[in-house]
Write a protein that binds this DNA or RNA. Structure first.
Lengths: 217, 217
DNA sequence: ATACTTAAGTGGTCTGACCACTATTCTTTC
DNA sequence: GAAAGAATAGTGGTCAGACCACTTAAGTAT
């Protein structure tokens, strides 16, 4: 906490420091945190830095602030999801492998759901993608997958997936190559006729190719 | 934006304001946002307030800041994305339906993984459960499912599942009835021989029965 | 034309100062 | 003595100004 050496992202260290503080002082759900001024003094940083960290946690729903009263640990049940996910966001020890695998769980699930629901298969967006591929237009990797998860209508799954995507260190934001488009075309073609087996085969094929690009582990 | 009336949570309005700004000015992925000082002036608030909002979005991964350069829209997709995320940010209650469905996504995924991995099929815990059923011993619903997810070794998936379970209002903590045990026995029997189809059929059968108990929606 | 220096712009942080609100304490009053 | 009201201290909310470190671009000297 006393590192303070113009380290870029000091407020992120404060976020971590707050986690420790909550743990060490055993602050329970609904319990009160030290005041901003006290935190600033204890951590040897300015109050504004403390506030930036607190505001971030507030937006995540982890804490609750009441003017004139103080800052409190947020309601338990209500924000558990965010808590877990933010735990990973805060670089806690979780292997990239788990993050990746969990992301894929949600992707596969979406494919399966679409293949077993004729309403979802008929959505125009799939043929839209196929058309784009036909015309060699630009499509990013993330676009197709995201649209699949969006189509399932499960917003929670979507939220989790989005968070996982940004931390799985897979180059999802780039455009697809010609080879990839061919695979995705197969995937979409299988999708619209509900051929789950073929769709998943294409997915795994594509997934391996994408992950292979940056073979770090 | 000019409301500014000591309204508690001004920085939340800024978050919303930024979303509009991104949309209206059509700032693309990777595009540059106005500087903090300019934003402060345009929105008639102090720079520190702007920073609190920006830092929140940064922790969420929505934006990326580079000292000396500026603030950029993170590697995400357009307005659609920001809309969805900001929806959650604003504490929208996630529907029970989504929680349930997401929980099942993880459960199904675990079953599929076990059925496709002979190492997992050979784990003694499955026969242990079968033995307990045979001897009419007490087994809680949650025990079997949890063990399946534990066995996959994906700790992140396990954590998410545990939270969802706690939140999905399904009576997982109670003991299984005789009928349920029969279904679970089928499930486990299929599991240990890798019969994914049968295992899933049993799972869905069991799942419907359990959820039907408290037919709220 | 190239290399170096300078300046401007930007995020990162700190300080101090108010404001608005809450809870506590201390009066005043009965 | 007890209750009602007033002053006080503590807290989050916000702002303004000042540095610092870094990046980029413009300007200068070679």
């Amino acid at each position: 906490m006393e590192s303070q050496k113009t380290y870029s992202k000091m407020f992120l260290e404060i976020v971590g420091g707050l986690r420790n503080l909550i743990k060490e002082e055993d602050i329970k759900t609904g319990g009160k945190l030290p005041s901003e001024r006290e935190l600033a003094e204890r951590m040897n940083v300015g109050r504004s830095t403390i506030r930036e960290a607190l505001r971030s946690l507030e937006l995540l729903g982890l804490i609750e602030t009441r003017r004139g009263e103080g800052t409190f640990l947020a309601d338990f049940q209500k924000n558990q999801f965010v808590d877990v996910l933010s735990g990973f966001i805060l670089q806690q020890p979780t292997s990239i492998r788990d993050v990746r695998e969990t992301r894929k769980i949600h992707e596969i699930s979406a494919i399966q759901k679409i293949c077993n629901c004729s309403t979802l298969q008929k959505m125009p967006v799939w043929n839209g993608f196929l058309l784009k591929i036909e015309q060699h237009m630009c499509i990013k990797r993330i676009d197709v997958i995201r649209e699949m998860i969006v189509s399932t209508g499960n917003r929670l799954s979507l939220k989790i997936w989005m968070l996982l995507t940004q931390y799985s260190q897979v180059p999802y934001g780039v455009e697809m190559t010609v080879e990839e488009k061919n695979i995705i075309r197969d995937l979409l073609s299988a999708l619209v006729i509900g051929d789950e087996g073929k769709a998943l085969t294409s997915y795994f094929n594509w997934s391996e190719r994408v992950e292979g690009e940056r073979g770090e582990e």
